[in-house]
Design a protein around this nucleic acid. Sequence first.
DNA 1: CGGATTTTTGAAAACCATCAACGCGGGTGG
DNA 2: CCACCCGCGTTGATGGTTTTCAAAAATCCG
Lengths: 253, 253
Amino acid sequence: MARATIQNWQTSLPPGDCAACPIRKFAAYAGASRGSLKFLRSCRLGERVLPPKRNIYREEREADELFTLYDGWAFTYKLLPDGRRQILDFLLPGSFIGLHVLWFKAMPHSVQSLTSVSLCVFDKEKFRDLLRRKPEYERELLKYSASCQALSDERLSDLGRRTAKERIARLILEIHDQLADRGMVDRGSFPFHVRQEHIADALGLTKVHVSRTLQGLRHEGLVEIGRQTANILDLRGLRELTGFTERRALQLC
Amino acid sequence: MARATIQNWQTSLPPGDCAACPIRKFAAYAGASRGSLKFLRSCRLGERVLPPKRNIYREEREADELFTLYDGWAFTYKLLPDGRRQILDFLLPGSFIGLHVLWFKAMPHSVQSLTSVSLCVFDKEKFRDLLRRKPEYERELLKYSASCQALSDERLSDLGRRTAKERIARLILEIHDQLADRGMVDRGSFPFHVRQEHIADALGLTKVHVSRTLQGLRHEGLVEIGRQTANILDLRGLRELTGFTERRALQLC
DNA sequence: CGGATTTTTGAAAACCATCAACGCGGGTGG
DNA sequence: CCACCCGCGTTGATGGTTTTCAAAAATCCG
């Protein structure tokens, strides 16, 4: 518990003013006009800091708050009745969390923190009002939702039609590319707060097989995964392994 | 070719007036106000009929039309460079097709007809205008997009964490439930225009293994899949097999 | 240093893929 | 009208990828 407290201090808080928010350009409402940001701010209930392994939402439960992940990592997942877990997506700073609460009685999935996280908290009803009064947010969210869907379709192709090696290589590259956008990659090295068990549950594998496959990638000199960091040794080779197809489809008109 | 022509005639066309459209209540813009339907109608370029196995979109290509599937079945898919195919979703009457063209330079996936289909065709630019002028359509589409995402997350859990038998049972039930909403199920029997190879490519299996698994389900007296129809013999048993978890999460607030 | 978490290793088995051949039926063409 | 062909489903034998189970080693953290 003391540990959690310490970690809280390591996690930076979002500024009070959305216009000054450094991660806003990665958020769902990135394109919102400056003038409308004060409406966004009025939906904010404040910020919240959570230690690792805490649930932000729980599947099949109601909720009346939405979030933007400001700092830290999290993931969305579903649990089968017998305990099998499917991780749907990893969430990095800027991710919009909880779109579903706007219409659905219960959340269709759970969300859990991976590191300590800090969140912007929005009130459901106020956010609904925001959408009614400022349609530009609806447009931004719709675009955001469509691009998330495209990423999710890529993951579906991974699970359905790619080998374990390809899946793992692509997951590492996906995280790499997202962090590179945010300027968080230093000569192939970047933070990597995902354990092998998370990789397994995201990619439909067992942790044992993830361990073996990761060793394979290391022995081929492609990538090393350390405790909290990843290090891509041969970006070219890693991309070749995955068949090149890198997010051409996501360019905007 | 004569065949294709004949099939065209078997496919019914949507009415000119959206307000009179019988499948509108299953469409993305189901909740649109009656008054705004004339704007929707003004986006329509007309209707189009295609024979089976024709592409409506092609991955990585540009497009300037959107569609609503009025009659017939289709599916969305992605192709890997070496020919492996992943079917992302099956589309039934009412499905909105091509949300992505509103923002993205290229389609992130392909769409192909399974039977002969008839489509309402919308112009991209006019549809963009519609969204600007009638924000209620944006809201409806956002809700639609969120519910599609929830279904897609279910599929991801299938591929990642369920056995072949569970996956197939759930796919059949998903189609059953959607058709039941539309009143197209008659004592467990319903149209089923999906070949075993499509099931395989949707669920990350081979057609051989789908064949064997389907036989298993038949021998257990659960379900029979014929040429163009499915027949659920034991709905209770089939649902039990999948672990009950039936779309509780999708109830609206 | 000790306890919990995470990763690694090994052996055996399950599940599913692959390959190849055959059967069946509906539509086409002779 | 019948034979043929093609698409689709079935079957069997075999092999590979991945899982399972169990235990040890390594790492982290207090």
